[in-house]
């Protein structure tokens, strides 16, 4: 009887999990394995003719200055962009947590860039940074800040950091909302108890709020890492035709090398090897973050 029930349960479980598992295997796991295989070939992708080259693509990548420069740009976004995004998200969370009037409106405003297409945002920031009639320089000129008003924000020396500011502006809303969702789950009594004990607002935020949303922070950092490591659309769109090299991330470099954008470089095997390397970087990042942010879960 028990055996029969178990068998039935297994069947029902398989019935529910099966289709999803099949889709996952076909559309995610199989292509991932195939990508590993493709990365071992010299292949242009127009025909099935491909030459097995073993680990040559990876060894070439290790000597490819442009790959390392692109990886440096990517990691810069992960770390410096991440620091700015989370610092601001914490500030906004603390401010919004004070329940001032217009809280929901402000939350909606800072979240808004997340619902706008990256191409539209890129166009907007292109206008903001235009050195001749851009919003930023015009504003500085109106304030009499002439030194600032002649800054060329998108020049090769400044473009990376200018675009970083735009990226922070785009993503800070999402992470603020994420952190606030965690804060909203904290029982009100916790804050009241801290206030009765005489804790300041800062102390409450650092000693009560942050420890109690630690799991949300950990998830947020992992999400940011994955987003930043794969960063592509906004950087690609902001520069009109093809992003300047100063903005090339690993994803953009992969696209340049594999997809013949502007110039007919069709090194699909090499591009796939770059993709495999990026996957490894993502895995290492997740493992590191999970270890660094590991805490005993608080139950409340």
């Amino acid at each position: 009887m028990i055996r029969s029930m178990r068998r039935e349960r297994r069947f029902v479980t398989a019935l529910f999990i099966g289709p999803a598992l099949a889709i996952y295997l076909i559309f995610f796991i199989f292509p991932a394995i195939q990508a590993l295989w493709t990365s071992l070939y010299d292949w242009r992708g127009f025909t099935e003719d491909a030459t097995f080259v073993g680990l040559k693509n990876f060894s070439e990548m290790s000597r490819d200055n442009q790959f390392w420069a692109s990886l440096g740009n990517t990691l810069g976004i992960v770390f410096f962009g991440g620091l700015a995004v989370f610092a601001l998200a914490f500030v906004f969370t603390a401010l919004l947590d004070s329940h001032f009037k217009g809280r929901k409106f402000f939350r909606a405003v800072i979240f808004m860039p997340n619902v706008i297409a990256p191409v539209a945002l890129a166009t907007l920031w292109g206008f903001i940074y235009n050195p001749r009639f851009g919003l930023l320089n015009s504003f500085a000129r109106a304030l009499g800040l002439e030194d600032l008003a002649i800054t060329t924000w998108m020049a090769p020396d400044t473009i990376y950091w200018s675009v970083m500011v735009a990226l922070v502006w785009i993503y800070v809303g999402f992470y603020t909302v994420l952190l606030m969702a965690g804060v909203d789950k904290i029982p009100q009594e916790m804050f009241e108890a801290a206030q009765i004990e005489g804790a300041s607002g800062f102390q409450i935020f650092t000693r009560v709020t942050i420890p109690m949303i630690w799991d949300v922070i950990a998830v947020g950092v992992v999400l940011w890492g994955i987003t930043a490591l794969k960063m592509f659309e906004f950087l690609y769109a902001i520069s009109g035709i093809l992003p300047p090299r100063e903005l090339w991330t690993v994803s953009i470099y992969l696209y340049v090398m594999g997809f013949g954008k502007r110039d007919p470089i069709f090194r699909l095997g090499y591009a796939t090897a770059i993709g495999v390397a990026l996957l490894l970087v993502v895995i290492v990042f997740i493992i590191l973050v999970r270890r660094l942010l590991r805490r005993e879960a608080l139950e409340f």
């Binding site: 292109g126 050195p131 001749r132 060329t152 998108m154 020049a155 090769p156 520069s239 009109g240 035709i241």
Partner: peptide, 19 residues
């Protein structure tokens, strides 16, 4: 001035506008 930071087509627009 500023050409090193022109996002295409900002540069060619300066020709069209007579600057």
């Amino acid at each position: 001035e500023g050409a090193e930071g022109f996002v295409w087509p900002a540069g060619q627009q300066e020709l069209a506008l007579g600057n």
